[in-house]
Design a protein around this nucleic acid. Structure first.
Lengths: 115, 115
DNA sequence: CTCGCATACCTCGCGACCTTAGGCATTCGA
DNA sequence: TCGAATGCCTAAGGTCGCGAGGTATGCGAG
């Protein structure tokens, strides 16, 4: 199980990244995240929908009501241009933190300490 | 600026990682994070000390009062064995999420969509 | 036909935790 | 003497995931 804080930090970039691949909808996003993470990221719809609504209020994504083949109604979301820029920013932030962590995880080859 | 949620998610693994390199103390950890991240991660002591106290209450780190060369008192922290295990777990979780994000950021070479 | 399940969406209260802002003590240089 | 850097700690406020609960439809099993 992934810690709640990591889920919180990754939810927005994950949703934006998935939508950058093309239009999608809530239920499908849930399954996609589960699949892509090999089941290690377990989202609930109770946290996903508020995220989608926040992102839409922030104009990072846009939605439309659509009809599935089976007749069920779905709300399809897609990335806005502002969302693309936000995704790029989120991505840079993530990579900055990731680079910092990886530097600490790397063997101490270039370590300046005199230990 | 790094988003608050990313700060929340990275603070614990960062602190544990830094301490895995050897004993340290609050003020020094702050500077280390700033340096390692190239100034992109800007922590305040107001968020670091609560983190340190939580980690100590959880027995992931241990502390002792020490004296600096200049006479100032410092509280030195070091990783406990439980902390080492926790760090390994945090690291795996981080890398799981990172792998998921990178899969979405990679070019669509193997993309199964028929677009 | 009816029941249950998967699909598909939404909302609310609780608790965790960063942010901002403050406080306290010591050392050193101007 | 006075301010800045060092070094530690805490409180109020707001954000947001989590768990639980609610609504509705299509489909297959009995």
């Amino acid at each position: 199980m992934i810690t709640p804080k990591l889920v919180a930090a990754s939810s927005v970039p994950l949703v934006l990244s998935i939508l950058s691949r093309g239009e999608s909808y809530g239920y499908s996003i849930l399954q996609r995240v589960r699949l892509l993470s090999g089941g290690r990221i377990e989202w609930t719809d109770g946290m996903l929908y508020p995220v989608l609504h926040r992102l839409e209020r922030a104009h990072l994504i846009e939605s439309r009501w659509g009809e599935a083949e089976n007749g069920r109604r779905r709300r399809y979301y897609r990335l806005s241009s502002a969302g693309e820029r936000a995704l790029a920013a989120e991505r840079e932030e993530w990579q900055a933190v990731d680079a910092t962590l990886r530097a600490l995880w790397a063997p101490k080859i270039g370590d300046a300490s005199h230990a």
